[in-house]
Every structure is written in structure tokens, then in C-alpha cells.
Write a protein that binds this DNA or RNA. Structure first.
Lengths: 193, 193, 193, 193
DNA sequence: CATGAATGAGCTTTCATTCAT
DNA sequence: TATGAATGAAAGCTCATTCAT
């Protein structure tokens, strides 16, 4: 994954991966059908782990809103501690038609479904708007997180990715439009109260 | 661009591009330094056009909110009528480190700045929240649009991309959290008060 | 053909063939689909020439017997002057299932048919026995010639192959059994009796 | 031998042979020096058996003519009941120069000598023509049988090979030319009659 | 004796690039 | 300016062979 992340699929040489792994070139082919299979396999395995750990973590949170916050923080934390995965996920797999078309992306879909479930639960709990499409919200969330990570990686990881948790959460929850006067007063009153 | 979009950079053959363009292989090299330069050049040229037309269009809108709506619609319309560009932008250029690192992305940056300016103006006009980072909002917007287009392309363009304009606008402006009754009523009462 | 004949298909390296031909490795692939195609193509082309020249030569002979003699001499002469072809024909093409199964051997069949026609004509002219199967005779003739050439090649071509013409002709025509008068007459007498 | 016969030397994998033999890959190398040695060894062993059994069988026949008939039938019978050997003999061993040059073919030569001895004996007994070269006749016989088996194998063994015994015997003994004098007289006589 | 995972040399084939015409 | 045949470096992959267990 290190090599794929650094060079990209086509510029990564099997011999380099083998050397990095401390095995002979041929040994790779005892465990993977070919170079494609190698990329997909290591990605799928990692994603399986991530999905499992996310599911566990979310299950511990009491309500949809805290789950949502947890999801975002975990996403950012995860990529922060494993930027190689970010590159592979963001760039290589989404990359060539080769993968996006032929590869079924089971675990990637599982991840998006995880987001979807949190949103649906939030709607049932009444904290999320129910007049919006879940599939659209999934993309709003995933696209935003994706872009945050992507920009961070491409900028050379100049800050702690996880510090974006609250600002991003705020944006996703309340949008960018200024809340009109009435709404603005609310907090004031509450403070008073 | 058709070829690059369909096959991806590494699977696109210079000879195929030449054939599609109706010229001989060697002719390509009279106009472009190499295959890398070819991809970057045609992309930059296209982006320059797009940025120019976007700037013109936005200049015709009276206020920040209508500019914002116009920006989103144009983004979706643009990719809808030119899906090849979408693939190149989304996939090929963001793809290999080769490009993301060495290529300066002048026009891509210009595009993001265009979004940024609309946001800043909205803040000055008082319709956008001023307690949020412009750079963060740029990524919220761009990431979301990106993901919408990306999903649409990969799903085989099964619907009119532009129909997402209003729902996406709504999500970006108001967020996903339900503005609950109490909150809503309170201002009303206060208004009464 | 030189290289294939000397080393055999699998031990012949494309790079060696290219060097011998005075071109770069890649140039081979502008004219042949792959290594298999290369072998089959050069063989088919040669066989086409041979079949044509054989057909012409045989057409000039007045009767079946002289055609038969001519066929045998030409076969032996041909391989004598082009031993490389012999190796390829005898060894490489008959060799691996790869070729014998997938390759249709059009021209090889044409060659066998040429033999068959001479035999049939001989039967019609009454100089060849008509109580024998043409297909069997074809194989008697081809197998014998094949073995003569094969032995000659493998022995290092120690003599003029064409000197075998008359002895072989004699064997094929009269067989190996002694036709002594007594034996021949006996059946006749017995018939009479 | 099964594997070599089915795939040919170069396309046969040592691992496949090992699997078929129910041993580990490495075990092969405890008994054979390398892949070449493996092919030659199993072929030589088989040929030794065959030569021995042929010698025994021929020794039981009373005269050269019956030995000759027996030889041809055994040859055809043998390949019919062991077509794998046919492929190896016909194709693989005669195949690559690698074998034809470096490998001394002791047992193959023994087989040809067996044919030669029958011929010589036939000449001494006066049933075979003594005006013909034994070495030539050996090749006539072997080449013919070879071609019969070869065609049969490549055609997918569509009939009983052994049924060719009498026709082939007839061809080899009497040749393909219509018999002169006596026979020639016959029609004349018949005409007279 | 037997194993089979690991090795790595060496092959075919591709394709960006060149340059004589 | 345009061509496109020729180039040749470079890479994925195979598989005979080895050797620690």
C-alpha cells in the first residue's frame, strides 16, 4: 500500500513492491493473481477492518447526533493515522476505469451504507431533516470528507486533520446560509435562560 | 480528451489519440512535448474556457445567493453536457501523483477561487454565515459537487444531473439538521414579544 | 525460418530472430501478431510457393508414372536445397499440440492432396493398383519421404538426398517382397486349377 | 508421459507432472537430474520394455514373413493401446534439436535395428528382394508406420489402428504399381478369353 | 526421504518517441 | 509541416530449481 500510495498503480513496479516487502518478485504471484488483484486485495482487507471498527464504535454511541459526530471524527482520525490508505482510496481505486468498472467495491459500499444508516436513524430520532434524500446526504457527507482529506493529503498534511471535526460537523448540520434573525436570537435567550 | 476520459491516462495510447484526431502519431509531438504535456495542455485549455464562461455568467447575477445558485447549476450542467471532462478532471488529473505533484493546477485553483469569491461576497452581503472558514466552505461545496458528479458518472449517467441543483443547494445552505419546533417557535414568540 | 529450424520454436528467442533479420525486436510485432503467428506465417508462405511450383511442374509431365517420379524427386530436391524448411516442417509444426491442433494446416493438406491426385490419376490410367486406398497410399508415400528427409537431416546431411529418388521410387512401386516367377505364376495356376 | 504427451515438453510443467504423480515438486529432483532428464528417462525406460517384448514376440514366429506381419501388427497395436507414448515418440522426442542432437536415442535405434533384422532375415530366406538397401527399407517401413500412427493420433483416433495391419502389409510388400508380367498377361488372356 | 514455499533469471510483448522522407 | 515505420527500453509474469524443515 505504501508503494501504490506513493507512485500510483501504473507507476508502481511489482519488483519495487516485492523489494519493499522483502520477498522475491515471484513470491508476490504465489499470493496474488496479478498486479490488479494485489491492489484490490490489500485495499479490501483494510476496508474490512475499518468498517468493522467503525461499526463497533458507532454502536457505543447513544444517539444519532453523537454517532454522526463520532463518524466524522473517526473518518478524519483514520486517514490522519493512515494517509497511505487515503491515497489508495482516493486516487488509485477511484482512478482508472479498470477498477471503477470491474471492481465491485463491496467494502466501499458498506462504508457508504454505514453513513446512510446514521442519517436514517437521525431522521427517525427527529434530529435530522426528514425532507431530504438519504442518498443525497450520503454524498454530501462523503464528498465533503473526501475533499477535506484529499486537500490535506495533496497539501502535504500540514495540520492535524482531526481538528476539522467540529467545523465540518457544524457546516454539515447547519449549512452555510446565515440563520435569520429569529434563529439568531434563540441562543441569546437560551443563554439568558 | 475523449480518449483519456474513456481509458484513463495510462491505458490511453498516443496512437489512438492521433487516430481519433485524424493525424499521424508523429504530428502529436509537433504540438506537445510528450504524453503528459498532452493531457495537461488539453485539460488546462478546457478549464480556461470554463473559468471564463463561469466568470461571465456569475457577473450577470445581482447578488451572492443567486450567484451561488447559478454556480451550482452551471457546474452540474457543465458536467452533464461534457461528461468526458468530468472523467478527466475527477479521475485522471486527481489520479497519479505524477500529475498532482508536478502539475501546478493553475486553472483548477482558479475554479476553486471562483467558488471562494462567491462565498466571501455572500458573507459581506450578510446572507452567508461569517463565522465559518471560506476555505472550508470551498471544500464543502466542491467536494459535494464532485461527489454528485462522480456518482452520476460511475452509475452510468442514469438521470439529468442538473435536477440535483435545488436539493443540493438546499443541503448546502441549510444543512441536514432539523430546525426543531421549539427553536422555530421561539423566534416566532419572540417576534410576538 | 533459419532460427526456428536451428533451435526449435520454444528455444528460439524473438530477439534472436529480430537480430538475424536485422530489425529491432518491436519491428517483428508490426508484421506478426505474436511468436506463434510468426512461425505459422513464414511456413504457410513457403508452402504456398512450394505447392504452386509443384503443381506447375507436375502439369508438364505426360502421364501418372512420370508425375509420380517427378513428385518424389522434387520433394527430395526441395528439402535438399532448403533444409531449414525441412526442420520446421518436420519438427516444429508437427511438434507441439499448440500448432497441430489449433493450426489448420491448409497448405500442408494441399500438399497431401497433390500426392493423392497423382495416385488417383495413376489408378485411372491403370498403372497403379486400384484395389488400394488412396488415403493409405498418400500416407505410405508421405511417411516414407518424411522419414527419408528426417533421417538425412538428423544425420547431418551426409549425402545428396536426391540420389534416393530411384531407390525410393522402386520401393514404393514394387514393394519389398520378392516377386519371383514361381510365386507369381502359382496363384495363376491355382486359379486355373 | 501422460503430461508430456498431452502438452508437449515445453508446455508441460514440472509441478503438473509432480501433482499427477502424487508427489511434491521437489521429489522429482531426487530421481531425475532435471526436466530434460525426466523426459528422456521415462521414454528410454518405456522403449526398453517395448523392445524386449517385441524381441520376445518376434522370436516366436517361424519365418521372416510372419515376423514382418507380427512386427507391423504389434507396432499398431502398441500405439493403439498406448497413444501417449505415440505422442512422445512422434512429437516430443523428434521435436527439439535439444533432444535430437544431445540425446543418443539408444533404444530408438534398437527399435529400428529390430526392423532391420527382420528385413535382412527375409532377404536371406528369399522372400524379400535382395536388390534393395536394408537401411532404406527400414525407413520405408518406419516412416510409413509413423505416418499411419501420426495421422491417427492427430485425427483424434477415430478408428482401430490395428485394422490397418493387412492393408499396410500389402502395400509394403507389393508396392503401389499394378503388377506386371503375370498380372499384365492376365488381362491379355482375359481379353483373349 | 519427502516437502513445497521461495527464488529470480529470463522471456514476450507493448508503446512512447524519433527521424528519414 | 506532416508522416508512420522503426525503435528498444522496460515491465509483468512464469516456472525450473533449491533447500530449510
Amino acid at each position: 500500500m505504501d508503494v501504490f500510495a506513493r507512485k500510483g498503480f501504473f507507476l508502481s513496479k511489482v519488483s519495487e513492491i516485492a523489494k519493499k516487502a522483502g520477498v522475491a518478485d515471484g513470491t508476490i504471484y504465489l499470493y496474488f493473481k496479478n498486479k490488479d488483484d494485489l491492489l484490490i486485495s490489500i485495499f479490501e482487507e483494510k476496508m474490512r477492518e475499518i468498517n468493522a471498527s467503525f461499526r463497533d464504535a458507532l454502536a457505543q454511541e447513544p444517539d444519532a447526533l453523537s454517532r454522526f459526530r463520532r463518524l466524522i471524527r473517526m473518518h478524519l482520525e483514520g486517514f490522519q493515522s493512515y494517509p497511505e490508505l487515503a491515497s489508495v482510496l482516493l486516487v488509485e481505486l477511484r482512478q482508472s476505469s479498470r477498477f471503477m468498472r470491474e471492481y465491485k467495491k463491496v467494502e466501499l459500499k458498506n462504508y457508504l451504507d454505514l453513513i446512510g444508516k446514521v442519517v436514517e436513524q437521525g431522521q427517525r430520532e427527529g434530529v435530522f431533516r426528514s425532507d431530504i434524500s438519504v442518498s443525497l446526504v450520503k454524498r454530501l457527507i462523503f464528498g465533503t470528507l473526501d475533499e477535506m482529506v484529499s486537500t490535506w493529503v495533496l497539501a502535504g498534511r500540514p495540520y492535524e486533520l482531526v481538528t476539522l471535526t467540529e467545523p465540518v460537523l457544524d457546516l454539515l448540520l447547519h449549512g452555510i446560509q446565515r440563520e435569520n434573525d429569529s434563529i439568531r436570537k434563540k441562543p441569546l435567550q437560551e443563554d439568558v435562560t
